[in-house]
Design a protein around this nucleic acid. Structure first.
Length: 879
RNA sequence: GGGCGCAUAGCUCAGCUGGUUUAGAGCACCGCCCUUACAAGGCGGGGGUCACUGGUUCGAAUCCAGUUGCGCCUACCA
């Protein structure tokens, strides 16, 4: 009975069916009580607002590879899934929704608004989870968590209070990054610096009690309204006359002291700086040093406040224009220079950030950073690729305190309580009833915590911390963290700090940092550019396996990836190749029971593919263990397509089509053995198609329950591979002649081989049918007595002379050209080798084995040259 | 300003600790083939002074230094 199998692999249906099967059978579930060694990966939690993009697809494919590989290696694997509440992003989404109804969040009030966000989350949020499933990811979905879940919130409170108790959290009035659109403070990491073309405006400030002026240079002229001094470098000779004097702030006519501070760079601008302590971090420092007034001129929304005099109420950029115009009218704007500088933007809404003076909560980070630096330095945590270690060190060593309070409503409320009577602040796990100091009424701090303040606890909060759970015991520390390199500081570094502080152990042992997926022109994919590729569309078009395969095959280790929609054909073609190899083998099996692989009955091709297979098993496993996943896939591809399909399956066709059942069975048993193993190796990369063909072929329940093949190094046989490569080279040479001389497969040809190597002749004699079948030859004559034909195409392979009589078919001119080219090449190679051997220091210094090799080469090349020359002569004589 | 990375075929990239004939793959290109797994395929072919300069070495795409170009990160770039 022949099974009807489609000529083309049709993934539709297959993928959904298997995913449901895996889920229904609980294959993704992790058992904390298992006796097996555990292997754990924490998913980088996608934002609840996120929709699947190609970066998620890559990130999670890599994780899935590790998880599926380790599971088949016998580990108890846990891939912990979950989502991030994404404070700003989520609040923005719901606020936009409200705006459509003509409302803002204040119309609802805090409680109602937060309710509304939860509603939104239930209805529209978390789409990405379902989307991830279409790509086949083996997360333990039963464990899915959300950073705002009760358990995780408990962890956040515990950490805040406990850090506070340890003196690592403080509240202070400081210059922070303020997003006027989001209306909240941001941490340094949440500010994206973009290089902008700006201007350096030179402004004249009149010197008090003198007809003179000083000229200051600024990129933000509107901040002059908040100036409380001008500063010069104390060493600057040009301005020594100003020491002790004052200047008059134009427009507002305020008197400003001239101060001296070594922070001022005499080389930059005019060497005189306006000092605005409330709106610039450097000026803030100077203000502290010189006891200057801090004049805040901005409202929270970026408009100017009452301190801005006649400019109050204007937007900051409008104010800039107006101020410049007014200064110009007074003749105080003396020069405008082009000036490129980097400007901070909000990472969520791209609004230009204002350095803003406000009261915020901070984490004193230096004490935490110290241990985290050491964890990486000592190798307790390894970064892959290693190049990130330097970047990590540099960042950690220069880290500044972490501003963790956000003026948002969506997030974890800060567990601090302010006394309405005496102003006392109490930090506590449970809300205290009254002020411990004066028994006054308490009000909880209105701010919420930075979203990253919950995600930095991810490796243990997801496992039930601060409770002592079985999960924590089994799965912490986790093993590998896979994430984009852009998130190293935001998240990875902070998890290391929190893990060491609260678990007293690293949160993971290895960090795999991959690059960013870009479009074909190397641009970041973004909504505004419209150059994104929708992974779901690609899954629909090409299959999930194809998407996974393509992404990975294009992903150089840790580097950015360029990709276009058409590239997904690579993956589709590969799965189709698997399908057809399966189809071929399976058509030969029919219903019969397959005999076990019998190593004593193998012929050359079998031994060869088994040797190559065992080599492939070793190299692919090595690659995965060493975090070289795309190299692993490349090796799997090369073996499966380039060796198994291109050579082995071709070599056994003669046996498979024969009537001799024993011959059929021996070939088939090897073919199936190697195919099954290859599917297992490939399963982590392309889980669906491998599951489909593996189970069909083996009758087993699931490939996921099978064990990853282990390389039997004793089957790697160099001698066999050498023999086989002789067959391959000869075959290629014959095929080349046929192709060049346009001899179609339908025309059978004869091949004459001549050699004085007894060894090579024996190999060919034993395996002549391989060459005959691969090259569609009638016969091969080995060192025969027949006359050399007048007209023949020729070649030389490993000192074996190939002669193909092609009377009537040969194009003499073409063949001459071909031989001349070959001659030229070999002569070049010969020359290079000779040059080496003539060089006395080479012979003296190079290892003997290398010298010996070169001598052998020289011998071979010169012999080949002679033979080609002879063949050329024959051609000339014949024409 | 500092740091890191990249530069190999028309394009995307392999090439790990120097020695695989004269550097590989995929895509693209050319030729032949609907050969009894696969035209989403097979077989063959063309195409590269490995960015530049210098150094180390018997020997460099590979190691070192510098130069140029590009990218990313980072900074108290008024």
């Amino acid at each position: 009975m022949k099974k009807e199998i489609s000529k083309i692999y049709n993934p539709k249906g297959v993928e959904k069916r298997w995913y449901d099967f895996w889920m229904d059978n609980g294959f993704f579930r992790a058992d904390p009580n298992s006796s097996k060694e555990s292997f754990t990966i924490m998913i980088p939690p996608p934002n609840v607002t996120a929709e699947l993009h190609i970066g998620h697809a890559l990130n999670n494919t890599i994780q899935d590879i590790f998880i599926r590989y380790k599971k088949m290696k016998g580990y108890e694997t846990l891939w912990m899934p979950g989502m991030d509440h994404a404070g700003i992003a989520t609040q923005n989404v719901v606020e936009r929704q409200l705006a459509k109804e003509g409302l803002d969040r204040h119309d609802l009030g805090r409680e109602k608004f937060v309710e509304r966000v939860w509603e939104w989350k239930k209805e529209k949020g978390g789409k990405i989870i379902e989307q991830l499933k279409t790509l086949g990811f083996a997360c333990d979905w039963d464990r899915e968590v959300f950073t705002m879940d009760e358990q995780l919130s408990k962890a956040v409170t515990e950490v805040f209070v406990s850090l506070h108790e340890r003196g690592h959290i403080y509240r202070a009035k400081y210059i922070i990054n303020w997003c006027p659109r989001c209306g909240t403070a941001l941490s340094d990491e949440e500010v994206e610096h973009k290089e902008l073309q700006g201007h350096l405006w030179h402004l004249k400030y009149p010197v008090d009690g003198s007809p003179e002026f000083v000229t200051v240079a600024t990129t933000r002229p509107e901040t002059m309204l908040g100036d409380s001094a001008v500063a010069v470098n104390p060493e600057d000779e040009r301005y020594k006359n100003l020491h002790g004097k004052s200047v008059i702030l134009p427009l507002l006519n305020r008197k400003l002291k001239v101060i001296q501070d070594s922070l001022v760079d005499p080389e930059f601008g005019t060497g005189v700086v306006k000092v605005t302590p409330a709106h610039d971090p450097n000026d803030f420092e100077m203000g502290e040093r010189h006891g200057l007034e801090k004049i805040n001129i901005l409202n929270e929304d970026g408009t100017l406040n009452e301190n801005a005099g006649q400019y109050a109420g204007l937007d900051r950029f409008e104010a800039r224009e107006r101020i410049l115009k007014d200064l110009e009218a007074e003749g105080l704007l003396v020069k405008i220079e082009d000036h490129d500088h980097s400007v901070g933007h909000c990472y969520r809404c791209s609004t230009i950030i204002e350095p803003y003076l406000s009261e915020q909560w901070f984490v004193k980070i230096a004490p935490l950073a110290e241990k985290a630096i050491d964890a990486v330095k000592s190798g307790k945590i390894k970064l892959h690729p290693k190049k990130w270690i330097k970047t990590y060190d540099h960042w950690m060593e220069n880290i500044r305190d972490w501003c963790i309070s956000r003026q948002l409503w969506w997030g974890h409320r800060i567990p601090a309580y302010h006394c309405e009577e005496c102003g006392e602040i109490m930090v506590a796990r449970e809300e205290p009833e009254k002020c411990a100091h004066c028994s006054g009424a308490l009000k909880q701090d209105p701010d919420v915590l930075d979203t990253w303040f919950s995600s930095w606890l991810w490796p243990f909060s997801t496992l039930g911390w601060p409770d002592k759970t079985a999960e924590l015991k089994s799965f912490y520390p986790t093993n590998t963290l896979v994430t984009g390199n852009e998130i190293l500081f935001f998240w990875v570094a902070r998890m290391i700090m929190s893990g060491l502080e609260f678990m007293e152990a690293v949160p993971f042992t290895d960090v795999y940092l991959h690059g960013i997926v870009r479009d074909e022109q190397g641009r970041k994919m973004s909504k505004s550019l419209g150059n994104g590729i929708d992974p779901l569309k690609m899954v629909n078009l090409y299959s999930a396996d194809a998407v996974r395969y393509t992404l990975l095959s294009l992903a150089p280790e840790g580097q950015d990836i360029r990709i276009g929609e058409k590239d997904f054909e690579i993956g589709r073609n590969f799965t189709n190749k698997i399908w057809n190899a399966y189809r071929f083998i399976s058509s030969k099996i029919d219903d019969k029971d397959l005999p076990e692989l019998n190593y004593s009955e193998l012929e050359l091709a079998d031994e060869w593919i088994i040797s190559r297979y065992n080599y492939a098993v070793a190299s692919i496993s090595d690659d995965i263990e060493n975090f070289k996943v795309s190299s692993a896939l490349d090796n799997a591809y090369k073996f499966f397509w380039g060796e198994y399909c291109d050579w082995y399956l071709e070599l056994i066709k003669e046996r498979l089509y024969s009537d001799d059942e024993a011959r059929v069975n021996s070939a088939l048993s090897v073919a199936v053995h190697v195919f099954k193993g290859t599917m297992q190796l490939l399963h982590p990369f392309v889980p669906f198609v491998t599951e489909e063909v593996y189970t069909e072929l083996s009758g087993e329940k699931s490939i996921m329950l099978s064990s990853m093949p282990i390389s039997d190094e004793s089957r790697i046989n160099r001698a066999v591979e050498d023999k086989m490569s002789l067959i391959q080279e000869l075959s290629t040479a014959v095929r080349t002649i046929r192709s060049q001389m346009s001899v179609p497969p339908s025309v059978k040809a004869t091949l004459i081989l001549r050699s004085n190597s007894k060894e090579n002749l024996e190999i060919i004699e034993e395996n002549r049918s391989y060459i005959e079948n691969l090259c569609k030859l009638d016969s091969i004559e080995l060192n025969g007595k027949s006359e050399r034909p007048k007209l023949a195409a020729t070649d030389v392979v490993k000192n074996i002379e190939l002669i193909m009589p092609l009377e009537g078919l040969i194009d003499i001119e073409l063949e001459t050209e071909r031989l001349n080219k070959a001659l030229h090449n070999v002569e070049g190679a010969l020359k290079a080798v000779e040059n080496k051997l003539v060089n006395k220091s080479f012979v003296k210094n190079a290892p003997p084995a290398v010298v010996e090799k070169e001598k052998q080469k020289k011998h071979d090349f010169s012999e080949k040259v002679t033979k080609i020359k002879t063949n050329l002569k024959w051609l000339t004589n014949a024409s």
